[in-house]
Amino acid sequence: MLIHTTFSTSLYPKIHNTQKLKAIKSSVSESTTLKDVPFHSQTQNELNQLKKKVKDPLSCSNKFCFCCSRRDFMAAVGTAALLPIHPSHASHDSSPTDPMAMLDRLHPPRPDWYEELYATAMNTSMKSYEAEIEGYKSELFANLRGDQAKQILEIGIGTGPNLKYYASKAGTSVYGVDPNRKMEKYAQAAAVAAGLPPANFKFLHAVSESLPLRDASVDAIIGTLVLCSVADVNLTLQEVRRVLKPGGVYLFVEHVAATGKDNVLRFVQGLLDPLQQTLADGCHLTRKTGKSITEAGFSDVESHQVVLSSASLINPHIIGMARN
């Protein structure tokens, strides 16, 4: 039951590997529409040159090596594409931080089979949870109206279960951030099923603590069951505020530590929290996420608590909206 109710977090063995690679510099438009962002600005010749600088991801002679050349290639291409968008934490951090370096530090390369297993489990095991929370999400995402639905970023997009609530709105473009690359195919399929044109959806392989987008570049940010497992909650919220336009909204659904009359549940959460962190790659049962959001510096925060029968230990949930 514990494993079933925590598939919304990251469940990975940790294998560490880092390698610095130079990125190709490119000059691009400052527009934040998907058709103009630098993800599509690399020429074929530039990519071919990049491929020659790193190993062919399929050529490793060690069949037990999960994370060498494949991750090197992704780091090179990813850094080249993302660097013109956001090479640092801008106003919130004076030290430049490469999103790919942050990805490697906070979410080291995992075996392909494990990331695929987890992505598949996420795609199939959350149906009862999603069915129970559907009404709450429908009400929450109804706040995305007009200009607030043009440029949307979802952190921890996973397999894309939220896309059906907002991606069908006319003129919407969506960026989906997730550290698990294997989530991409499921998120892409969910975007298509929601009626979002392929050209209007971009999956970004990154962590929420270093979002590869410019300052004030999106109208809304969505995060559901994300802050329980990020390495740094406060840094993630700083990044959310940095990327949001003035007046933009952050919509969230998070599980938090039980309080008050739920003393028994709170005791069990505290008892199992170390095990949960180990099994679920850092997911915390006892985080006071609502307090963190309230103190992050948003101009206004509204939220309420709900308890979901399908969520078991990861209760209660806070559901709300913060305005930048």
Results as ranks from 00 to 15, higher is better:
residue 7 F to E: 10
residue 27 S to W: 02
residue 27 S to C: 02
residue 34 L to A: 06
residue 37 V to Y: 13
residue 42 Q to K: 05
residue 43 T to R: 09
residue 48 N to Q: 10
residue 54 V to C: 12
residue 57 P to M: 13
residue 63 K to D: 08
residue 64 F to L: 09
residue 75 A to K: 07
residue 82 L to K: 04
residue 83 L to A: 07
residue 87 P to S: 02
residue 96 P to F: 09
residue 107 H to K: 08
residue 119 A to V: 02
residue 125 S to M: 15
residue 127 K to D: 13
residue 127 K to S: 13
residue 134 E to R: 12
residue 137 K to D: 10
residue 146 G to E: 03
residue 148 Q to R: 13
residue 155 I to Y: 00
residue 160 G to P: 13
residue 170 A to K: 15
residue 176 G to L: 06
residue 186 Y to G: 08
residue 186 Y to Q: 08
residue 187 A to Y: 03
residue 188 Q to N: 14
residue 194 A to R: 00
residue 201 F to E: 11
residue 204 L to G: 01
residue 205 H to Q: 09
residue 207 V to A: 02
residue 212 P to N: 06
residue 218 V to T: 14
residue 222 I to T: 14
residue 222 I to F: 08
residue 227 L to W: 02
residue 229 S to W: 00
residue 233 V to L: 00
residue 246 P to T: 11
residue 252 F to H: 05
residue 265 L to Y: 00
residue 271 L to N: 06
residue 276 Q to H: 11
residue 277 Q to W: 00
residue 277 Q to E: 14
residue 278 T to N: 09
residue 282 G to N: 09
residue 287 R to M: 01
residue 290 G to P: 02
residue 290 G to T: 00
residue 293 I to T: 01
residue 296 A to K: 05
residue 300 D to H: 13
residue 302 E to K: 15
residue 308 L to P: 04
residue 315 N to M: 02
residue 319 I to C: 06
residue 321 M to N: 11
residue 321 M to Q: 15
